[in-house]
C-alpha cells in the first residue's frame, strides 16, 4: 500500500484532511498511536474499528476538539485551526440535542451558529425531506431515537459544510431511514462535500465508501479502497453448499476455519492451500451443490483483525 506521505505529495492541496504521525494519550493509555491518514476532497471515507480502538478520538482530533500530543493535523489545508469551524459539520456518536427545545428552533440555532443566517426555508426543506415536517414544533424529548438521529444529522449538514464528520450516523435507524440518510450523504458528496463517517456496519462501509480506513488499538491496520484491501487478502474464501457437515469440512487439509451460516458455509483457506484439492476432498464426502472461490468480505477482514487472528499494518493473508 502507498504510504500516506507519498499520497500527500501526490494529492497536494487536494486533501480535506491530513494526519501525520499523530499520537494522542489519555494518562498512560495511548488512544491513537502515530497515525497517518489522508482524506482527499470530495470522497466518502469510512472509519471502521472495534469499540475503543480510537475512532472517535481521531474524529475529535480532526474536529480539533482534542489536540494531538504529537504529530500534525491539517484540515482543509490549515494546520492550526479552531474547533469552531463553519466549514465542518459534525454529528456526534451520542445525540447532542437540547431535549426541551423544539425541533425547528434547534436546527435554526445550529444553522445560525454555523453562520447560516436566513435558515428557516432550508431547515424546513430538510425536515420535509426526512418526513419530520409535522414534528417541527415538537420538543426533541418526544422524538423517537431514529427521529432524533435524523434531526442530529440535519443539524450537522444544514449549513452545507465542505467537510462532514459523522460518528456512527446509521446506528439506531430502520432500513427506510437508513436509505434516506445514505441518499443524503451521497448527495452531499455529489455537491462537493467530503464525508468522513465511522460505522460498525460493514455492509454500509463496503457499499458507500470510496476509501475504508480501519483503526485497531490506536494504530492504522487498513487504509484503501475495498478492492485494494481485498486484494491484500486474495481469494482465500470458499463458499460451499454441500452434504458435508461443519466437522467434516474442518478436517479437510488446507482449511483454516469454517463458518456455518445455515444455508452456506464459508471456508477460509490456509496460505498456499490448493482450492482444487479441497474440492476433491469435498466431493469425496458427498454431493456438492455450490463451490465458489471469493475474496473475503469486509466483515470477515474486520473480524480477522479485531479477533487478533491476523493483524499487521496492511498485512493480508497472501501478502
Amino acid at each position: 500500500m502507498a504510504s500516506s506521505t507519498v499520497k500527500t505529495e501526490r494529492l497536494g492541496g487536494m486533501n480535506a484532511v491530513e494526519l501525520e504521525k499523530v499520537t494522542k494519550r489519555f494518562g498512560t493509555h495511548v488512544a491513537v498511536d502515530s497515525l497517518d491518514l489522508v482524506v482527499p476532497k470530495g470522497t466518502i471515507y469510512g472509519f471502521i474499528g472495534p469499540n475503543g480502538s480510537g475512532k472517535t478520538t481521531t474524529l475529535r482530533m480532526i474536529l480539533r476538539i482534542f489536540h494531538p500530543d504529537e504529530g500534525r493535523i491539517r484540515v482543509m489545508g490549515i494546520e492550526r485551526g479552531s474547533a469552531a469551524d463553519n466549514q465542518v459539520g459534525y454529528l456526534p456518536e451520542e445525540r447532542g440535542l437540547y431535549r426541551k427545545m423544539r425541533v425547528r428552533e434547534q436546527l435554526q440555532f445550529y444553522a445560525a451558529l454555523k453562520g447560516l443566517r436566513r435558515n428557516r426555508k432550508v431547515v424546513d426543506e430538510w425536515l420535509e425531506r426526512f418526513g419530520l415536517a409535522e414534528w417541527a414544533d415538537k420538543k426533541v424529548e418526544v422524538l423517537s431515537k431514529g427521529m432524533s438521529q435524523k434531526v442530529q444529522f440535519i443539524a450537522a449538514v444544514v449549513s452545507r459544510p465542505v467537510l462532514v464528520i459523522l460518528d456512527e450516523p446509521f446506528s439506531g435507524l430502520d432500513p427506510v431511514n437508513m436509505e434516506a440518510l445514505k441518499d443524503a450523504v451521497i448527495e452531499l458528496r455529489r455537491n462537493g462535500s467530503t464525508i468522513i463517517f465511522s460505522t460498525h456496519d460493514m455492509e454500509i462501509a463496503e457499499r458507500m465508501c470510496d476509501t475504508i480506513f480501519m483503526i485497531f488499538q490506536g494504530r492504522k491496520v487498513l487504509d484503501g479502497t475495498l478492492a485494494e484491501i481485498q486484494a491484500q487478502y486474495g481469494e482465500d474464501v470458499i463458499r460451499v453448499r454441500a452434504a458435508a457437515t461443519e466437522k467434516d469440512l474442518a478436517k479437510i487439509q488446507g482449511v483454516a476455519r469454517v463458518n456455518d451460516y445455515g444455508q452456506t458455509m464459508e471456508l477460509r483457506m490456509e496460505k498456499e492451500a490448493d482450492s482444487q484439492q479441497i474440492l476433491r476432498e469435498l466431493t469425496a464426502i458427498g454431493r456438492v451443490e455450490r463451490f465458489e472461490l471469493a475474496r473475503p468480505a469486509l466483515h470477515d477482514i474486520f473480524v480477522r483483525i479485531a479477533g487478533q487472528e491476523d493483524h499487521r499494518e496492511g498485512g493480508g493473508a497472501n501478502a
Binding site: L63, S82, A83, A84, Y90, P92, G96, Y98, Y110, A155
Partner: peptide, 20 residues
C-alpha cells in the same frame, strides 16, 4: 451539565469558541 451529558457541548464547540 445537560450540555455535557447530552454531548451538546461537542456540537457547540464545533461551532463556537469556548469563551464565546
Amino acid at each position: 451539565i445537560e450540555e455535557k451529558q447530552q454531548r451538546i457541548a461537542e456540537v457547540l464547540l464545533g461551532s463556537a469558541q469556548p469563551f464565546d
